[in-house]
Nucleic acid binder design. Sequence first.
DNA 1: AACATTTGACCAGC
DNA 2: GCTGGTCAAATGTT
Length: 261
Amino acid sequence: MFHGVDKAVEALLRGQESANRLKTVLEHPSTSSVPTEPLFDTVLDSFSFALSLFSNFTSSNPQPHRESSQNKPTPVARKSPKKTNYRENGLEHYSHDSPAPLHNDGFSWRKYGQKKIKTSSHQRCYYRCAYAKDRNCDATKRVQQIQDSPSVYRTTYVGKHVCEVNAFSQLNDDIINDSKMIRFEQTMSESVMPQLALVDHQAITIEDDQGTDQIMNLECDSNGLLVDDDQLWAYQFPPCSPGNLMFFEDVTAFDYNPFHL
DNA sequence: AACATTTGACCAGC
DNA sequence: GCTGGTCAAATGTT
């Protein structure tokens, strides 16, 4: 098993977690206060990343990472390590108010600062992507209570997560001769990931932990997302029972290319 | 010991 | 000079 499998699994689990959270949000739009945009970004990035891994098994030209959601401008790298002014340099940003701080929004954050803000009686907390260093990800967020009784917390996301992309680049060489394992625990509905409805035909073989080959006709759309040939894959991750482990063993032997037309 | 958080200092923009 | 954002050493946690 290639030693970077944890990173790939981590990306998929993050996407899965966000998809489930997004499902909850969409099913209860009137009561939920969780922002959907970061969840969409997480889902799409995670699965695009995973698909890029697969495509790279047989292709020396990996699928470009998807564009930023809503075709927003690509975040601009800071000129200086100090003082980000995203209003001027075009950094992607997004704010959301909620009655409680958003501790679990699908990304891993590391707090790097906390400051008393003049215009508020509450302190502002600063977070950056937990993979900022390892994967050169510039995504940050700020969380601040902006109102008392009822309490309102404003979470401002700045920049875009590129950690999956960079992790992908680091893993390229590792993947070729190794296998991978993915754990699926829950299901997601088509309403959560409607993009999965668009299909293009390809198939790969997945081997379970007993070593028996399990053929699953996985298909990929133009956005690089997995769907199932038997129409269940788009609705259920996985077709097998929750918690099952699936080993992607020696995928190169099957000449898998999800982007082949 | 490794990792995460806290907090005062520093820096750049206004 | 003020302010918000970041750094980095100190401290806490696992």
